[in-house]
């Protein structure tokens, strides 16, 4: 079976562009703190979600709604309403991470598929099967800590479909288990749906150099005419004793396009593209390229080579944890 391309949509326009470009599936979120890309000007209101689902369905595509932050104590109804409304909009699945929210969805919305978000960091077959037995989870988005052979081993031990990230931003920490951002800025992926938020970024020129700061901490410094990378915490430049460098990860993004055949052999059902904050033209281009790749694979033809390099904005690319030496 052809591998499913799961594509991000931060806006209704991006959703339509992705569907037209051939995305089998689109994922998106409501415009509030219930999803992990809670950026200004992004995401869907209730009417847009229903229209987006109808548009996708009329073109044979599916829509998954990410409700993958951790509900705030005392305000869980906001997250419950998101699950209710995703279901009412006719979405094909909700992507959840929180145990309480999974229990809520399993109890109140048996009709809608439950996918386990990467934010749950389910990294082995035992816990994946536990989520399936306990909450009826049908698909798991695997955390970016696993190598391809480990993914194959997981698929051999579970009936739950697996979805893996193949392109875009790359978390180097286990997702859903990282408070670096709230330590420095007060805002976190788990609670607020943001990481290293733009509201806490400042650039300052000093002595011919450009400093990039997050929450007052300088974590990048380049010559003033060089491109300044965005100061994401885990990809910042730090020092230990006399050593200076990107101690956690370089400012790289993930590109696993050349691993698609191996991921298919490993039993992966769906390939996920990161980037709900991206423009519709970017989204359309990435979708076309990945669609071409999985169609070529299905037809027994070689993959188009290096098709996505120009989309990475001059950034370095990595295959991340899929190759074991990354660890």
């Amino acid at each position: 079976m052809v591998m499913e391309i799961v594509c991000p949509a931060g806006t209704p326009a991006a959703l339509r562009a992705a569907v037209k470009a051939g995305a089998h599936t689109v994922y998106c979120g409501f415009n509030d703190e219930t999803n992990a890309r809670n950026f200004p000007g992004l995401n869907f209101d209730r009417a847009e979600m229903a229209e987006g689902v109808a548009f996708a369905h009329s073109h044979g595509s599916k829509v998954l709604v990410a409700i993958n932050t951790f509900p705030r104590a005392g305000a869980e109804d906001i997250w419950h309403r998101a699950v209710d409304d995703a279901s009412a909009a006719g979405a094909d699945a909700v992507i959840l991470a929180d145990l309480g929210l999974l229990a809520y969805a399993a109890e109140n919305h048996t009709g809608i598929r439950r996918h386990l978000s990467v934010q749950a960091a389910a990294a082995n077959a035992d816990v994946i099967n536990f989520y399936a037995e306990t909450f009826g989870v049908k698909r798991v988005v695997l955390p970016r800590v696993l190598s391809v052979p480990e993914i194959a081993a997981i698929n051999a031990e579970t009936e739950v479909e697996t979805e893996v990230f193949v392109f875009g931003g790359l978390c180097v920490m286990a997702e859903g288990r990282c408070s670096l951002s709230s330590y420095a800025t007060g805002l976190s992926p788990n609670m607020n749906g943001v990481c290293s938020p733009a509201s806490h970024v400042e650039y300052q020129e000093e002595g011919g150099e450009l400093d990039a700061r997050l929450g007052g901490y300088t974590i990048h410094r380049v010559g003033k005419d060089e491109p300044a990378p965005y100061p994401t915490l885990c990809k910042g430049c730090f020092s230990v004793d006399s050593k200076k460098g990107h101690l956690f990860e370089d400012p790289v993004s993930l590109n696993a396009e050349q691993l698609i055949p191996q991921l298919q052999k490993a039993g992966v059902t769906a390939l996920k593209i990161e980037g709900r904050q991206r423009s519709r033209s970017y989204v359309a281009q990435v979708v076309r390229n990945f669609r071409a790749a999985v169609d070529a694979l299905e037809a027994g033809q070689p993959l188009p080579v290096g098709m996505l390099a120009r989309l990475s904005e001059g950034q370095q690319m990595t295959t991340g944890a899929y190759k074991k030496t990354w660890r």
Partner: peptide, 30 residues
């Protein structure tokens, strides 16, 4: 790690550490 819960017999008494995401009442009750 929630994996460890999958190894315990149902109903067995256990404790939950700070690296499990207990952010809200529903999760606590579950």
């Amino acid at each position: 790690d929630l994996t460890a819960l999958s190894y315990l017999p149902e109903g067995a008494r256990f404790s939950v550490g700070p690296l499990i995401n207990t952010y809200n009442e529903s999760t606590l009750r579950w």
